[in-house]
Nucleic acid binder design. Sequence first.
DNA 1: GTAAGGATTGGC
DNA 2: CCAATCCTTACT
Length: 174
Amino acid sequence: MSKTKRLSTDFFIREVTVVAPDLLGKTLVRCFDDGTKQRFIITETEAYRGQDDKACHANKGKTARTEVMFRKGGLVYVYLIYGMYWLLNFVTGPENESSAVLIRGIEGISGPGRVGKALKLDKSFYGENLATSPKIWLEDTGLKLNYTTLPRVGINYAGEPWISKPWRFVADPL
DNA sequence: GTAAGGATTGGC
DNA sequence: CCAATCCTTACT
């Protein structure tokens, strides 16, 4: 028998700064339309912490684009950036907390834009429930990775103190 | 309605 | 360094 188990909603109903590093080493499973499945180990994440965080899209309040972040954790938040890349995020925390984790890297793939491309993401993933979706979910194989914390990328517009928050989590090489 | 710019990437 | 490419937000 296997130790592998699908992560439930409870996993995501925690502080985003706890969930983000805890996702490192977890397996991201993507089931495509033709039934083929691909599995990727998560190697890099970033935490976006609710309305107070000026780097978080939810800081401007609830809009059509960000409303999913205000819902209960365990949902998928995807959005198109620069007209060409779908970035993958997992909503965390209880209802009305508007926090999310950006998946910046998976095994063999660096960069959030390339992650979305590898997983063939699109608008239809917006609001997917990771506990029940047939297309995308996470599994815990028991793997734990050591990691390093760094400042987040591409958010200079947010200003201090947000620029300096060590909310980027990168798994150490094996 | 119109305009500016983005949690990026790859090419010059 | 800068274009690609289109959606979201802010402002007239």
